[in-house]
């Protein structure tokens, strides 16, 4: 299969880039922001969003809904999200296969859950509820994982079951695939082969770093502080050969570079989409 058209390539927006983004957004097809940074009532953040929204579609990415938690999603938070999505006419809303809240305490991180039947039942209920309150289909993203896996179900299998049960879409973060697979001793291409790629509605691409542990092993850390890794781009091209042109976001959240570095990353991703014309993907081999 070959890619008929180039997918939409978006950039994660940071306020520091507002002026530069307005001056030069030729390389950007859409913007994505973290929902929780825009839940205030007013002020500059919303003005900037409104301005960007007048130029490009807006994707909203949640980091605080804790869908993988043992408690139902927070009703007030869901309502605030619904207000944000309506206010800025968000094209897409995505969240994570992770938890971050418990007993009225919140941790600003995406924490892992065991992929077992109990978790699946819980997740399905929470995703159903969120989709109902938000009145739209959610995209659920594979997280980056650091702890050794003790999962009865593999992540692709788990996400496939979740997708079938709730009708949600999937957001495949290929950087997280590389990071989690390295940290848990899985071959990334095996992961991709098992992943329900037909349900992927968005890709995320980002950079990661390598860190040595005291026991001599290394882990990869999904720090979003640098350029997209080459393996991530290779996997992207291979996945894209199967999914067709799916909107693709580049994340860069720390050690923010100049805007033109980000637009160059957008061009790198765009160039990678052309690799599938010459490289047989896993679909061709299957």
């Amino acid at each position: 299969m070959s890619v008929e058209t180039v997918p939409a390539i978006g950039l994660a927006f940071k306020p520091v880039h507002f002026e530069s983004a307005l001056a030069d957004m030729a390389a950007v097809d859409f913007f994505e922001v973290h929902a929780e940074n825009y839940l205030g009532a007013g002020g500059l953040p919303h003005r900037q969003l409104q301005r960007l929204r007048s130029e490009r579609p807006l994707f909203v990415h949640g980091v605080g809904l804790s869908l993988g938690g043992s408690e139902r999603p927070d009703r007030l938070h869901l309502q605030r999200l619904a207000g944000l999505l309506a206010r800025h006419e968000a094209a897409v809303f995505s969240e994570h296969l992770a938890w971050s809240s418990h007993a009225a305490r919140y941790l600003p991180d995406l924490l892992p859950l065991d992929y077992d039947d109990a978790a699946l039942v819980r997740l399905c209920a929470h995703v159903d509820e969120a989709q109902q309150v938000l009145g739209r289909t959610l995209l659920i993203e594979n997280p980056s994982r650091y702890l050794p896996a003790a999962d009865p179900l593999a992540e692709p299998q788990f996400l496939e079951a979740l997708q079938r049960a709730t009708g949600c879409g999937l957001l495949l973060d290929l950087n997280n695939v590389v990071v989690s697979c390295h940290n848990q001793g899985i071959a990334p291409r095996d992961y991709l082969r098992r992943f329900p790629l037909q349900a992927v509605a968005q890709f995320h691409l980002a950079g990661h770093r390598r860190q040595s542990l005291a026991d001599g092993s290394t882990i990869l850390i999904d720090d979003h502080a640098g350029a997209i890794g080459e393996l991530v781009l290779d996997l992207y091209a291979e996945a894209l050969a199967i999914t067709g042109p799916v909107p693709t976001l580049i994340e860069w959240d720390q050690d923010l570079p100049d805007w033109n570095v980000l637009t160059r990353e957008a061009e790198r991703a765009r160039a990678a989409t052309q690799r599938v014309r010459t490289t047989p993907g896993p679909g061709a081999a299957a």
Partner: peptide, 14 residues
């Protein structure tokens, strides 16, 4: 020890 240093990644993020 290996688990501890992996938990430390989450701790650092938080």
């Amino acid at each position: 020890e290996s688990l501890h240093s992996r938990l430390a990644v989450h701790r650092q993020t938080v």
